[in-house]
């Protein structure tokens, strides 16, 4: 009996410990810098982040800025429904405070205190400067309010338990940069920030381990396509990646959608490329410089399931 009590107490302590370590974290108002938001920079980050690619309720023309959500993403974990992030007061995020927005982007924590699923790539956005997040919110506040309630995700057990996301965050959420760059090199630093942060390139171009976290030793070396058939390419300078691409080839691709061989961008990269085309030449140069700078890695050997 005594032993049973000891076991139960230890178990309760262990559970409490896990819950504590994996609790949704939040910044407080005092953590926000005293800063006047810059909407123009917010627009640039909005494009770099490709927010509209997932959240736009219409995909053509000005409708790209109607962030009513509703896109359904079929994944091995179940069905994700992309939420409304337009400034609509009841169905969107119109009532969110700056702090709530920053907590969502930086820590993956919802205003109600729940964890967000990392299908929302906050693991990358967590590397963004708080000032930039504030700029982004001020830009998004000016977009059209869209009345649309996309509904809840329909995930399979055990993925439907949000508490588990805390464990995922404990293992995989790390706001430090992935690659070291010379802090004196402004171009590389800018490229690193755009690629590792808002651009969230690694979310698709880096393979994941069994916990669903990115395999940092395979950074940008290509991965199976999360949406099914095909592969997401290796974008390091390895022979089976971008070895033959110059920085100007990468810049041209991001601006136009054409590879050096004049094949055209396809799949989900189309929307990404169209966002990259909206950035400045300097931003595209910075991304290209960073991609040529990081270690060239061979893509992970394809398993039968990745081939088609």
């Amino acid at each position: 009996m005594k032993r049973l009590v000891t076991v139960l107490v230890l178990l309760a302590m262990a559970i409490a410990m896990v819950l504590f370590l994996t609790r949704p974290e939040r910044l407080s108002l005092a953590d926000l810098p005293d800063y006047v938001a810059d909407t123009t920079n917010g627009e640039r980050l909005f494009n770099a982040g490709g927010c509209a690619s997932c959240h736009a309720s219409e995909t053509e023309g000005p409708g790209k800025l109607h962030l009513g959500g509703g896109l359904e993403m079929e994944t091995p974990f179940g069905l994700f429904r992309v939420p409304n992030i337009s400034p609509h007061e009841s169905t969107g995020v119109g009532k969110w405070t700056m702090l709530q927005f920053v907590n969502a982007m930086h820590l993956g924590t919802a205003p109600g205190g729940q964890h967000y699923y990392p299908a929302f790539p906050y693991a990358s956005y967590s590397r963004m400067r708080l000032e930039d997040l504030m700029d982004l919110k001020s830009y998004m506040d000016g977009l059209p309010a869209v009345d649309n309630s996309p509904g809840d995700h329909e995930l399979k057990f055990p993925w439907n338990m949000r508490l588990g996301i805390g464990v995922w965050k404990f293992l995989n959420l790390d706001p430090s940069f992935i690659k070291m760059v010379d802090e004196q090199n402004a171009l590389l630093e800018r490229g690193r920030y755009l690629v590792e942060g808002p651009g969230h390139c690694g979310e698709c171009h880096t393979p994941r381990d069994w916990t669903g976290g990115l395999q940092m030793d395979q950074w940008l070396a290509g991965a199976p396509n999360p949406e099914g058939k095909g592969r997401v390419p290796n974008i390091t300078s390895h022979d089976n990646g971008l070895a033959d691409w110059s920085t100007s080839d990468i810049e041209y691709y991001l601006a136009s959608g054409f590879t050096p061989d004049f094949d055209v961008v396809g799949g989900s990269m189309v929307k990404v490329q169209e966002n990259m085309a909206l950035l400045s030449d300097e931003d595209r140069s910075a991304i290209a410089a960073y991609l040529k700078y990081i270690p060239a890695l061979s893509k992970v050997r394809q398993s039968v399931s990745d081939i088609d």
Binding site: G230, V232, S256, V264, S268, M269, D308
Partner: peptide, 17 residues
């Protein structure tokens, strides 16, 4: 024209590298 190339390859081609 280029826009229509992308338009079709976006949803109707499998990306294989």
């Amino acid at each position: 024209v280029f826009k229509t190339c992308k338009g079709c390859h976006e949803g109707y081609r499998v990306e294989k590298e």
